[in-house]
């Protein structure tokens, strides 16, 4: 179980996160719904070790991670725009985390090729990021993160910049791969449909305060989840 307790963050007098609490069972995904400026990205950066909270704890299977540096957490942050290393090929990008962990090259190559096959990029391993489409780049970004089987994956609206078709394909791919690799993840989005597709459990972040819902039914009942509005919209046009 991953437990986040009482995480708070202020910038000067502005409250960004107010005693945020949540838990995620290992191997599952919690979708987090929130408007821009609700503190979603700050929460993810704190969990990734890229920002320091004012208070709070982050416990993975009983181990406190909050004071560990980013590189020792094995908690990978994935942002909206795929941050691929531009001077490296697709192969090198995918292998990056494994090389950092000094994996023997034969095992490394096998893992990279298997993953490249799974994400449909085996033919593109020698290309550089600028030679790929937006969807392909995001697949490399995603593959590079899951290949190291991180303790937790933090996804910050990863498919927001993709067109509707590619986005649908990426959602399917993510669900498939995350199940295969037993990835624990926190999936941030502002799209209620995406939150429902991707998550096993849910949460809504408003002005730095988080409310968690462990079942779909509970989440749907929430007036500010936007689900009721969505259902009413589709009913109204029928």
């Amino acid at each position: 179980m991953i437990t986040i307790k009482d995480i708070s963050k202020n910038y000067g007098n502005t409250v960004i996160l107010r005693r945020v609490q949540l838990s995620i069972p290992v191997g599952s995904c919690r979708s987090l719904l929130g408007e821009s400026g609700s503190g979603k990205s700050t929460l993810l950066k704190i969990l990734a070790g890229l920002e320091k909270p004012d208070s709070g704890s982050f416990i993975y299977q009983g181990e406190e991670l909050i004071n560990k540096p980013a590189e020792k957490r094995s908690v990978v942050y994935l942002s909206q725009d795929p941050l691929l290393f531009p001077h490296m090929t697709v192969y090198d990008n995918l292998a990056y985390g494994l090389r950092v962990r000094k994996m023997p090259s034969s095992t490394l190559e096998e893992k990279v090729i298997t993953l490249a096959q799974q994400i449909g990029l085996k033919e593109h391993l020698k290309k550089h990021p600028h030679q790929l489409s937006g969807g392909q780049r995001q697949r490399v970004n995603f593959g590079r993160s899951v290949i190291i089987t991180p303790r937790m994956l933090l996804l910050d609206e990863p498919f927001a910049s993709l067109d509707a078709t590619t986005r649908g394909k990426m959602q399917e791919l993510y669900l498939d791969i995350s199940r295969k690799y037993q990835i624990t993840s926190l999936f941030v989005t502002h799209d209620v449909r995406e939150a429902l597709i991707m998550g096993d459990t849910y949460g809504i972040l408003r002005n730095g305060s988080l409310s968690c819902y462990d079942t779909r039914a509970l989440f749907i009942q929430q007036p500010d989840s936007g689900v009721a509005e969505e259902i009413n919209f589709w009913k109204s046009i029928q």
Binding site: A48, E71, R73, V100, R101, I148
Partner: peptide, 22 residues
């Protein structure tokens, strides 16, 4: 972009010296 790429590399497990080198 460079600052965010460095942060990305760190979350993938790269230490400061590796981020600078790689």
């Amino acid at each position: 972009n460079v600052i965010r790429l460095s942060a990305q590399a760190r979350t993938l497990g790269a230490s400061t010296s590796i981020v600078i080198k790689d």
